[in-house]
Design a binder for these strands. Structure first.
Length: 799
DNA sequence: CTCATACGGGG
DNA sequence: GTGTACGTATGAG
């Protein structure tokens, strides 16, 4: 545990530093149940607290036993209500001018809603209910008014995290069964149960016993909500096995919730346990890849490889192969299943660390912070806590509508060398601080105070994270704090433009983006004036290329940094331009779609580690594997300026195809059958995967079945059927079409067609003479993205 | 060509 | 009562 800092601003962490809270359950009658982990042991405590809500019209509590209270009771978080309803007149003239305190929230809220309905009927006021009362979930009420948060003084190593993974005979809990479960936790426990030595019911019972014995604070897996828990609950119910996994012996509860992925809210069914937090690395992965566009799939295996945490001897099995493999080689599937939970443990360390640290600041449960948006999800609860403690009236939210966003544009496509990335550090927060831009409704001045506090503290934590005098655990704690603060700092702007956020302010948001566009333009002008070739700009950063030096020497980091410093000198005070990466070359394909080649590739030109494919155009998971592989190799050759290699590669691939040397599995597409047979039959509309499956003599299927098939001369054929010769001409054509499209911007059209030819043509250019193409747009394709107010600038996750 | 619909993940 | 949103691939017309 980390001792609380002596200067610990309540604005950021809440006023009560009670350490070690790992879970809380609060009800609407003012009872809170608290689990704390102190020195590794879990203890249970209870507390009482007043429920609260903000109110716009005091007459809505007329007829209730109202007791007028002074705002000073709020600072101490207490009020002795004893059945009465506390009413506090708040300072300032924001919309919600009153705070109501009660220990019978159900009854009081019901009465207020009834009074509102009557008021509407009698025409005394017309505001919708949301403009009359502002009420939060009970758990947030407890944390907000008590000033407590989760995980004070804890590092990610101080909580016990348990990962479990089911292996099943299929995806449908009504038709399939569980045959294996792997369980591990962050304190070194690991075990595997399977049906070679017990029944499915015994396996579930044993799983329950182990989880209760290990008593984890956090339970994790990849797609745990949509798959593992749902499947477990269904099978346990069918077999009559109880699942008392909560800390009070209760079982899962279900609720509809949503996870914020980029600008989007995705619905999901949340399963919850009393006293424990449940988080999903699938959600975390999706949230990451919505921002960082070079993760190609959100699947566990792909994500683990991407973050470099896949064990070197990792066992890979196709989903459909898992159960058949278990029947003949259970040991192999045990290894596979244990690899899964190990990867989940590593992924959550990387992706959920910032959410963990945020939970020590924001008055919400960790599991909800892990799915929350940034503006309304993180900043608003901090401001509401500050307003509540300060006894200040609260503004109400409204629809914001669209407004002009960041400056984005593409200035050149093709293959460019000597590429540098520069970006303005924390552009929007810096603008808000430099220009003192805050919501007009922030009468208490909390917005900029918090932002300033966070900016200063983050630098401190960042420095401490590199302080060699601290222990490894302390340094990890410091790193997590600075990462969490970075997320918060980048979230302030998002709240301004978020419709129905209490403190939203369209005009303030517009001021920020307008100033941001001006500043980026200054950067672009400054770079161009110094002979840089602009490639692409997006909100707060720019990719540009430097022309080959007159003396033929390569550019060094130092000269690039000096150039950026020069341009930085043109910018207003408080705005910092930084060198953010350098690349040997780049293939600029479309806006936000490009490939980058590291300088280290000169030494070691290997594929996967040296070429970074960014953007959805390169992401398509539906390509046949051999095309996907070819394109990566082709891009590597192009980025190295080696057109002959590209041609050789193309010809070799075509020759392999024609000679029947390409394994059929590399030619297959993989498609899911997501509709059940009845639904497909009634949809009237023919879809290839279903037709292939039916034509192969399969009248029915289970939903979720994934099939793989390839093209033969006589039609599509399933990989699982007896093998047949594939249609080489078809695949040569597929290769050519896909390559012509993806490499279109890299070479002149005629050159590209000559390079991608199977045999030499009469008028073909010599490969030595084919030069990669660069097209500069005279009129830069400039845009001020019609702002989706929710598309916040990437709150880059600290990884 | 344009328009409409389904998909992302888990065994 | 507001956020069923994003970008892409496929099939139908």
């Amino acid at each position: 545990m980390i001792a609380p800092s002596p200067i610990r601003p309540a604005l950021l962490f809440g006023s009560d530093p009670t350490p070690g809270i790992v879970s809380v359950l609060a009800d609407r009658s003012g009872h809170a149940r608290i689990w704390r982990r102190v020195d590794g042991r879990v203890r249970y405590e209870e507390a009482t607290y007043p429920s609260w809500f903000f109110l716009a019209r005091p007459e809505l509590v007329d007829g209730l036993p109202v007791q007028e209270l002074d705002a000073s009771v709020l600072a101490t978080g207490g009020a002795n209500l004893q059945g009465s309803v506390g009413l506090v007149k708040l300072a300032g003239d924001n919309h919600f001018g009153y705070l109501v305190l009660t220990d019978q929230l159900d009854e009081v809220e019901r009465r207020v809603i009834e009074a509102a309905r009557q008021g509407h009927e009698e025409g005394r006021f017309t505001e919708p209910l949301s403009q009359l009362i502002y009420v939060r979930p009970a758990l947030e009420q407890y944390l907000t008014i008590s000033g407590r948060t989760y995980y004070q003084g804890m590092s990610y190593h101080d909580v016990r995290r348990l990962q479990f993974d089911l292996e099943t005979s299929g995806l449908d809990a009504n038709a399939h069964h569980i045959f294996m479960v792997a369980i591990r936790d962050s304190d070194g426990f690991a075990t595997i149960l399977d049906t070679t030595s017990m029944s499915e019911a015994e396996l579930i019972g044993e799983f329950v016993r182990i989880v209760r014995e290990r008593d984890p604070d956090i339970i994790e897996n990849h797609n745990i909500f949509e798959f593992d828990i749902r499947f477990l609950v269904r099978r346990a119910h069918a077999l009559g096995v109880p699942l008392p996994l909560g800390r009070d012996g209760s079982t899962f509860t279900e609720s509809r919730d949503s996870v914020k992925v980029g600008a989007i809210n995705e619905g999901f069914t949340r399963f919850s346990l009393v006293g424990r937090e449940i988080v999903d690395t699938f959600h975390a992965t999706k949230r990451y890849s919505a921002i960082q566009r070079d993760l190609r799939s959100n699947g566990l295996k792909e994500a683990a490889r991407y973050f470099g945490v896949a064990p070197p001897d990792r066992v890979y099995l196709e989903g459909a192969e898992v159960y058949p493999t278990f029947l003949r080689d259970p040991a192999l599937v045990r290894a596979y299943c244990m690899n899964d939970v190990e990867e989940v443990a590593s992924l959550s360390t990387i992706l959920l660390g910032p959410s963990f640290a945020l939970a020590s600041m924001v008055p919400k449960s960790y599991e909800r912070i892990a799915t929350a948006g940034t503006g309304q999800g993180l900043i608003e609860p901090l401001l509401v806590r500050a307003y509540l403690a300060g006894g200040h009236s609260l503004p109400s939210g409204q629809a914001v509508g669209s407004f002009a966003g960041g400056r984005t544009g593409i200035f050149a496509t093709g293959i460019v060398d000597n590429v540098v990335k520069a970006d303005v550090a924390s552009l929007y927060p810096s603008i808000m601080l430099a220009e003192r831009i805050a919501p007009a409704s922030d009468q208490a001045g909390a917005f900029l105070t918090l932002l300033e506090e966070l900016t200063g503290r983050r630098l401190h934590h960042k420095a401490q994270a590199r302080n060699a005098e601290l222990s490894a655990d302390e340094r990890r704690f410091e790193e997590a704090m600075q990462g969490a603060m970075k997320v918060l700092i980048n979230s302030f702007y998002g709240m301004l433009g978020a419709s129905f956020a209490l403190f939203c302010d369209k005009s303030a948001a517009e001021q920020v983006t307008a100033r941001g566009r001006d500043i980026l333009q200054m950067v672009l002008d400054g770079l161009e004036a110094r002979s840089a070739i602009l490639i692409e700009a997006d909100t707060d950063g720019v990719l540009f290329s430097l022309p080959t030096r007159a003396d033929g020497e390569p550019w060094s980091y130092q000269t690039e940094a000096a150039l950026i410093d020069e341009v930085a000198g043109l910018l207003p005070a408080g705005i910092h331009l930084e060198h953010d990466g350098r690349y040997r070359s780049m293939y600029s394909y479309m806006e936000k779609n490009y490939a980058l080649l590291d300088y280290s590739s000169d030494v070691e030109p290997t594929l996967s580690t040296r070429v970074r494919l960014v953007g959805s155009a390169f992401r398509s998971t539906k390509l046949e594997p051999f095309i996907d592989h070819f394109l990566s190799q082709a891009l590597l050759a192009l980025l190295r300026g080696d057109v002959s290699s590209l041609q050789q590669l193309y010809r070799a691939t075509c020759a392999d195809l024609r000679a029947g040397r390409v394994p059929v599995a590399d030619l297959c597409v993989t498609m899911p059958l997501t509709k059940d047979p009845e639904k497909y039959a009634s949809s009237e509309r023919k879809e290839e995967p279903y037709e292939v499956w039916i034509n192969a003599g399969n009248p029915t299927w289970k939903t979720g079945t994934r099939i793989r098939y390839y093209q033969t001369r006589s039609g599509k054929r399933l990989l699982s059927d007896p093998p047949s010769a594939y249609d080489a001409a078809y695949y040569v054509d597929r290769l050519r079409t896909a390559s012509l499209q993806r490499l279109d911007k890299a070479l002149d059209r005629e050159d590209l067609e000559a390079v991608l030819s199977e045999s030499p043509g009469l008028f073909d250019p010599l490969m030595e003479n084919v030069r990669p193409l660069v097209v500069k747009y005279v009129e830069p394709l400039e845009t001020a993205t019609p702002a989706s107010p929710l598309a916040e600038p990437a709150p880059a996750l600290a990884v």
